[in-house]
Amino acid sequence: MYKLVQNELLKIFKRSGTYVMIGLLILIVTVVGAFVKYQESGGTVPDNSEWKQGLQLENTNLEKQVAELEGQVPDSQITYYKRQIAINEYRIEHGLSPNSAYSVWEFVSDNVSIIELAGMFTIIIAAGIVASEFNWGTIKLLLIRPVSRSRILVAKYLTVLIFALIVVALCFSYSTVLGFILFGGPENASPYLNYHQGTVTEQSMFMHLLSSYGLNSVNMLMLATMAFMISAVFRSSSLAIGISLFLMFTGAQLTSLVAMKYDWAKYILFANTDLTQYFEGSPLVEGMTLPFSIIVLVVYFILFQLLAHLVFKKRDVAA
């Protein structure tokens, strides 16, 4: 199995397209960094010793808005206000100034959205890893080795996972390094304040970032698995890329549209891929819990894998 994965990685990293993808990721993180740095040097951090009063003022404003708008605007906005109020109160109580300088962690945290892009690249790899062998005609030489088809497919899937891990780790570590160079380390390690169902808790910043990157990767992994399945079943990488990217950009919105009317929306894959909803904010459909989402994700995962394996094993390789 190790050798098979080694083979798949060889095939990925011998193609120039892969380096273009990695180059793009690095370029975008760099551009974001340069942009933030440029903005930062424009204004200085407001170092106001009266920050407690400022926060109190903000809170009274927010409370007024909550009272006025409750029932008129979507719940999510009210939740957002409440979260802000709770966090501000926590800061006042524990003497944690919000006026710390923009540091490496803020930068890394801002870059979480780069995972979308890394996910896109992983989808492209997953979509091509089986279908390309058919396009190149190399599938014939690949399948006449003393290795069963299932093992080949498993090796290919593992390779997709490894590739995903590589790009996410690359984004994370490059953002960290670049953040340190551009913005320096945090002066005093300020904790991350998490608001979940009415209570505020302190988290180590590093742990928060790790879990935030990890949770955000769930979406990308499920989509990559789906792309992999389509690739194995339909032997078409463009179809796999097309469907997966379309769902990646619209899946969440479509699901929340459905969720407004129907309760069964909670069984849709995209209602469950965003696990951060259980740690911060509130779930999409009332009554959804973390174990529920995990079960749904596992069911989808097994379904994708089963489909891919059954079809790939039975397929007659002609033409």
Binding site: S16, T138, L141, I144
Partner: peptide, 9 residues
């Protein structure tokens, strides 16, 4: 089997 297609890259 038919043409010996290899990984061209």
């Amino acid at each position: 089997v038919e043409n010996p297609e290899m990984y061209k890259f």
